[in-house]
Write a protein that binds this DNA or RNA. Structure first.
Lengths: 182, 182
DNA sequence: GTCAAAGCTGGCCGATCGGTCAGCTAAGGT
DNA sequence: ACCTTAGCTGACCGATCGGCCAGCTTTGAC
């Protein structure tokens, strides 16, 4: 054995996460991952059944976290729902920067997979909460702006300490939604 | 000749624009475009030297428009710069919805091409204007949130009349930046 | 009517993709 | 010392990609 099994698997996942986030799922070949991880392409397919399995394992922790956020939001309404949605979204976007970046790059090619989180429904329920359960066109537009602003800005490469980033993302989103920033 | 030359070229560009926006540049094959346009793959490469040439022609009108916006913004400062940047960005994002969507899907694979607009420099100068020429971390975060919110929300599929979309995008972005909405 | 050129296509090419397989190496229980 | 098995690999496969080319059909100038 070349190296401990757990290390090899972890190295592959680490390389795949970085490369998928940087160049997209479709833009990263198995050979790219193998080279980066320092092993052969065949070795990848020994540890994982196929390319999709690597992606699925990388994205596995994301789904439950967003589901839990949705559960918390479901009981709330109005301004309370919007503030909770902002806080939760900022938190998850920062914790899963790279995973979110992967999802966004090939949305259309990935949302059709049943094992992956239901992105369409998720965004719909999130914008519903962010708008404070309002169906007004303005509220829907602002909810989308706030959601995309949070997710993509945190996925970007702003060179800022995490705490200031979290604080300013929250403040910016609340203002987008027209809510006073405490 | 099967049909008038100008029609064939226009049909190809129309199909390519829709397919690139829907599935990305790398996610759309020449065969896909040919099938959609109702001609053979070889016919595409008769009208265009290669796949990149189709993309370049689709994106050609975008560069000058953003360059002109930049020129207008360069002379402005502070709140004036931010307001002008919001108005200009909303306008261009709505006018070039599909083109922007293409650029965003494969940013990393496309920005390296010299003939295409300098996305990195463009976003940097735009966020500089949106922040009112401020280097404060908060202003930079909010500028990114406003920019991404405008661009991606307009690229999305909100089923709203263009005028309300324009008005609410502008209002939302100004609030994100902490500017009074008149 | 003739003919050069434009418009268009089927068939082919090399490269690269994800994935399979037989087989090599080394670890570890007995 | 022996042998099973986990870890790993080079070589290979079919599919698909972007792109090329010889040649067919139609047009329009003369």
């Amino acid at each position: 054995m070349a190296r401990s099994a757990t290390t090899m698997r972890a190295d592959i996942l680490d390389s795949a996460l970085r490369l998928f986030a940087a160049h997209g799922f479709r833009g990263t070949s198995l050979q790219d991952i193998a080279t980066d991880a320092g092993c052969s392409k065949a070795s990848l397919l020994y540890h994982f059944t196929n390319k999709d399995a690597i992606l699925t394992e990388l994205l596995a922790p994301v789904g439950p976290e967003f589901a839990e956020l949705e559960g918390r939001l479901a009981a709330l309404d109005g301004e309370e729902a919007a503030r909770a949605a902002v806080a939760g979204l900022v938190d998850l976007s920062l914790r899963f920067r790279l995973q979110v970046k992967i999802l966004l790059q090939d949305v259309d090619a990935l949302i059709c997979r049943p094992e992956l989180p239901d992105v369409d429904g998720l965004t719909e329920r999130l914008t519903d909460a962010l708008s404070g359960r309002s169906a007004a066109p303005q509220a829907r537009v602002w909810a989308w702006m706030a959601m995309l602003g949070i997710i993509l800005t945190s996925a970007g490469e702003l060179a800022l300490p995490e705490e200031t980033l979290r604080a300013e993302l929250t403040r910016g989103a609340l203002r987008t939604l027209g809510l006073p920033t405490d």
